[in-house]
Write a protein that binds this DNA or RNA. Structure first.
Lengths: 340, 340
DNA sequence: ATTATTCAGTCATACGTATGACTCCCGATC
DNA sequence: GATCGGGAGTCATACGTATGACTGAATAAT
């Protein structure tokens, strides 16, 4: 006949208390490091010993219930398969882990908006949202009651709209790129832009055009940030009667597609036409010739964004908007234009 | 003088109860769909109306505390920046969302093992772990007390060790690849393998060798699954005195590196040397010529894995081990060996 | 010697939900 | 007329934690 099992589930603070010969409150105090002036050093020691002896880990649900905070935030990204957003996630997750926060990632599937409502199933203290198609505030508002005032930090979004932002300095990168191309001698530029018209893409384009000086954009197309999107659009641009000498893409993967278009048309990169990308996570160095591109600090973007969000949660202030510098990486896909 | 604010936080089941003129229990019963035989149809209606009128969403922490289950699982992957694991995540997240589970992702950083203990900060009902360097069971055991018996499903791990698995049929893909290469006329094969020696890589290699027939592996190297890892190792393999006519890589990114090595040595792909990859998420079609590779159904892998895990949680049974077919995709990087 | 202060803890309660045990009422059965 | 059965709900409690209010003893100040 089996003796009545002691529960033997995960140990609770009560178990620790019993083991250390104190009350549950004391355990809680000690483990929350709020015992100064309330508990003696020897008791603190005893509680700590008991806790580690039993392998005690506080119950997250109970703590969340009590404190009204879940210690979990949501990261909103367009897709999960992009190395760029993977890197953003990496940076964000690292900071979150250091500050003992969990991260749940929600993919918007590239513009398809938030359905089903992701906030319904997860208990979230805040949101770190990166470049979305719709206005972030609208998105949150439409996500159901109780979410309007969820603390929010935006990545790569327009500053100064009442939401803290952490951005790449896309403008600076594009400016450097424009100046470099002009110096090479390019005057007729084709632009292969993103199909989705979010702020960050508009900002890039404006900065680029503003820095073109003697050169001008003679052809332009919009396409998804994919290999095939880039290839198809580039096919048209390269055949443009305006005869652009360089193709400036909004994304490295688009640029890789442009390579294929150029090849299909019998044009050599960079001899017959130069190509540039944007982003530089993985693709830029895979292709041949390696791609001249603007490198964005994706890991740091995620890290700084998460830092701002957690600061916002802890202190009510996310700190000043952050702008991280991009960097122009000159590689093999750009050359002076073919004469003529 | 401000009137004493009604709390005005998120509405609770008690608020719904008051609004509907019933007790909190009744609300709970109705919303959990357990009212049959206990609540009349009209009351059910009233409760539902009140709930949606107030925008009530149950408090996840309280529910978790009460039920002892968090409705959250952890997905363990080597890295976050890989399109392959991004796709696994996509599939897993989708299934989880459908069954109202949250997913938190934990990256092991490619073999660096689980530190700090990820299970301490998150409250988790189960783990879906994909190809890790260490034995999964050891990893879980070492993750601290209380985690040894966490429900677990493994992706791409050896079946029959007491843990439910969901695998790609890597063996079949490799067999098809070997036969294809032999048919092309290749006899001297170089193998560029993963640096980490987990089961899935061993299984691939064994299947490949077993199907080689008249051909044989004349050179072999281990390297990280990166561009530079592939390039460096391929440089040595291609210079091997055994003069392999084809380079079979464990990963598409490695294969892209091999392209660069070949180019550096003045060898053309596929005229002078054929190259094959493995995985096929994004990189395989970016490179030129496009890569002959074995395509793995990453999204479905994640989806089936999550399905198995949630079944395990719900019914105590994960169902039979799953094996998903891989597919040989013949593209431009393979050709008959150069004569001689 | 009395009062005030500090120290070292404990008590009790609340967070929001889910559920077994209970009550009450009305119609049917014996 | 007394008993039963079941329909329609409510009550009370537990989950594990955190914390403001309290207590008792010892020490310091007056």
């Amino acid at each position: 006949m089996p003796s009545p099992q002691p529960p033997a589930g995960r140990p609770t603070s009560k178990d620790v208390a019993k083991h250390a010969g104190v009350s549950q409150s004391t355990v809680s105090l000690v483990l929350a490091d709020k015992w100064r002036g309330r508990v003696s050093a020897t008791t603190v020691e005893a509680v700590r010993d008991a806790a580690s002896a039993l392998g005690y880990r506080p119950n997250t649900s109970a703590r969340s219930l009590r404190l009204g905070r879940t210690h979990t935030v949501m990261l909103v990204v367009p897709v999960l398969t992009s190395p760029f957003f993977g890197a953003v996630h990496t940076g964000a997750a690292q900071v979150a882990a250091e500050r003992d926060f969990g991260v749940v990632v929600y993919p918007t599937r590239d513009g398809v908006d938030l359905t089903p409502n992701p906030f319904s199933s997860a208990a979230i203290d805040g949101v770190l949202a990166s470049s979305m198609a719709a206005e972030p505030l609208d998105v949150l508002r439409s996500a159901g009651p109780g979410t309007e005032d969820l603390p929010l930090v935006m990545l790569d979004s327009e500053p100064g709209r009442g939401v803290p932002t952490v951005n790449d300095d896309v403008a600076d990168g594009m400016r450097a790129l424009a100046e470099y191309l002009v110096d090479l001698g390019h005057r007729r530029v084709a632009r292969l832009r993103s199909a989705v018209q979010s702020w960050t893409f508009r900002a890039r384009d404006e900065a680029f055009r503003a820095a073109l000086g003697p050169a001008e954009v003679v052809a332009e197309a919009h396409a998804p940030l994919t290999l095939d999107g880039g290839r198809t659009a580039a096919l048209a641009l390269l055949a443009s009667p305006a005869r652009p000498t360089v193709l400036v893409c909004d994304d490295d993967l688009q640029a890789a597609g442009a390579y294929k278009a150029a090849r299909a048309l019998g044009r050599r990169v960079p001899r017959d036409v130069s190509v540039t990308g944007f982003g530089d996570l993985r693709y830029a160095r895979v292709v041949e010739p390696e791609l001249t591109t603007v490198c964005l600090p994706a890991v740091e973007l995620g890290a700084r964004g998460m830092t701002a969000l957690l600061d916002l949660l802890d202190t009510g202030d996310a700190g000043p908007d952050v702008v991280l510098p991009g960097e122009l990486l000159v590689r093999g896909s750009t050359a002076p234009p073919a004469s003529g």
